[in-house]
């Protein structure tokens, strides 16, 4: 238990180890972790959401969106990072590529299922009111699909934060994983302190996105059914076929 006390002292000192040469501060590494995760998420979002939403809107490509998504998700993150290092070398490029590649499938699958699964009666009603395809997408399908689309974004974001720290194991320096990978400099207390920071960071990201989801969910949907706070944690698995 003493280790845990030391770990909190380490956090209190902002990651500096007495008697050792100054190391990057804990705040700096936490923000770097968040930054890398944020860039990777942004890249993946731009690819995955429009593609998933569009495929859902035209009700095509369920095989790509669901099955390929499920297979893709099976890729072990450390293995993808390692293979990337062999081809691209150690660096931010490899980390960002691996992270974006791994973040895409849950978002495509969820965005597809969200839009594809909107009750056809609503879509027909909207068409009857004279809405164009674009208006139906914007005013009917997207608002109704928000909870599921967001569930995919949250799954990916969590995964990206977690994998950003793992990237330290493949030699990339500049995230909280650096401390965990360098017990010689930081001692067990430092490693523990960094682990606590990573855990807190993941929980904060999760709760922030949950809050954001509540903000963008249309009021009608919120009234219709009080969604369980934990329901968005688990990605959708398409019926296997």
């Amino acid at each position: 238990m003493n280790n845990f006390v030391e770990a909190f002292k380490f956090i209190g000192r902002n990651g500096q180890v007495p008697g050792a040469p100054p190391l990057p501060s804990l705040v700096h590494l936490t923000l770097e972790t968040l930054k890398i995760a944020g860039i990777a998420m942004a890249i993946a979002l731009v690819i995955a959401i429009p593609l998933g939403v569009w495929l859902g809107h035209i009700h095509r490509g369920s095989f790509v969106a669901i099955n390929v998504g499920n297979i893709w998700r099976a890729l072990p993150s450390l293995a993808v990072l390692a293979i990337g290092v062999a081809f691209l070398g150690i660096g931010l490029g490899n980390v960002l590529l691996a992270l974006s590649v791994l973040a895409v499938p849950p978002m495509i699958t969820n965005a597809y299922v969200a839009v594809d699964g909107v009750d056809r009666d609503f879509v027909d009603a909207a068409r009857g009111m004279g809405m164009s395809g674009w208006e139906i997408l914007r005013k009917v399908e997207l608002p109704l699909g928000i909870p599921l689309i967001f569930a995919g974004i949250r799954t990916s974001a969590l995964f990206v934060v977690s994998t950003t720290t793992i990237s330290a194991l493949t030699g990339y320096s500049g995230s909280l994983g650096d401390i965990i990978n360098n017990e010689t400099s930081y001692h067990l207390s430092g490693v523990l302190g960094a682990a606590i920071c990573i855990a807190v960071l993941a929980l904060v990201v999760e709760f922030a996105l949950a809050g954001l989801q509540r903000l963008v969910t249309p009021r009608g949907l919120k009234l219709a059914g009080r969604e369980d706070a934990t329901s968005a944690f688990v990605p959708i698995v398409g019926e296997s076929s």
Partner: peptide
């Protein structure tokens, strides 16, 4: 438990 990144959980 599911939210805590693996690297952190192993170390904790």
């Amino acid at each position: 438990l599911y939210t805590i990144p693996s690297l952190a959980l192993f170390e904790l």
